[in-house]
Design a protein around this nucleic acid. Structure first.
Lengths: 119, 119
DNA sequence: GCGCAATATCGACGCACGTCGATGCCCACC
DNA sequence: GGTGGGCATCGACGTGCGTCGATATTGCGC
């Protein structure tokens, strides 16, 4: 009951009509999670690990950021549904949630968007 | 010479390997342009107009924002390459740049990403 | 249960950004 | 060429957020 990670779109695609204020806020919140270079780099770093998982200790040294700062960014990404973590002993392993990224991608440029071109 | 709007990707996809700091900053800058509800709503509003174009005067009343604020958001979207404008007499008509949105979408979730799934 | 190691949380600081009123610029019209 | 309207720019204010050091929490091993 605590894992609402269904791949259900949060709102219509941007180009598929006028978005309500609430829909725009949901979308913007997701974009805001991606609006920091450190977080984008973290995502790519995690995705590049074998098995697409990585323990948090690995990031601090690679990113030239303090441990609290990395922890903060991981939390933001996790709260946006882009990241999940699991405990393995003392370490926490993070992995990307591809369904979530796919949703964001489709909201920006869905397959149905091509028919909406107006030249 | 002043319109570098070629549909060339700005960096590899997020999940296609470790992004450099510079690549992550380019991407984050693009996401930051989309990280405000007003700007997301503006995009959908412009795209929903007939011909996907609209004069700026139309937005101020619809968005409950002052005219300078709307102008500011339009500038941010334009500098991100997501919007372009053309003058028609006294009015400025804005239109979305679909190629730019397609690039952002593909960077988040490219067609090649599906093969990178690790279960 | 005690110490250690990995990570999260807290409080504070500084900067970036959204917002607005006032003002300037550009174009059409007379 | 003077006037009016549409839009951009400027300056200022308040808030949000990235960053860090210090501290708390959690789990492992002895």
């Amino acid at each position: 009951m605590s894992k609402p990670k269904l791949p259900v779109p949060l709102c219509p695609a941007i180009l598929d009509g006028e978005l309500s204020r609430a829909q725009a806020e949901k979308l913007a919140a997701l974009f805001r999670a991606l609006a920091d270079p450190a977080r984008v780099q973290l995502l790519s770093l995690i995705a590049a690990q074998p098995g697409a998982k990585a323990c948090a200790c690995h990031f601090t040294e690679r990113m030239a950021l303090s441990q609290p700062t990395v922890s903060h960014h991981l939390k933001v990404l996790r709260e946006a549904g882009l990241l999940e973590r699991e405990r393995r002993g003392n370490w926490l392993y993070y992995h990307v949630v591809p369904e979530r990224l796919a949703i964001v991608s489709a909201t920006i440029w869905p397959p149905t968007a091509r028919r909406a071109r107006h030249g």
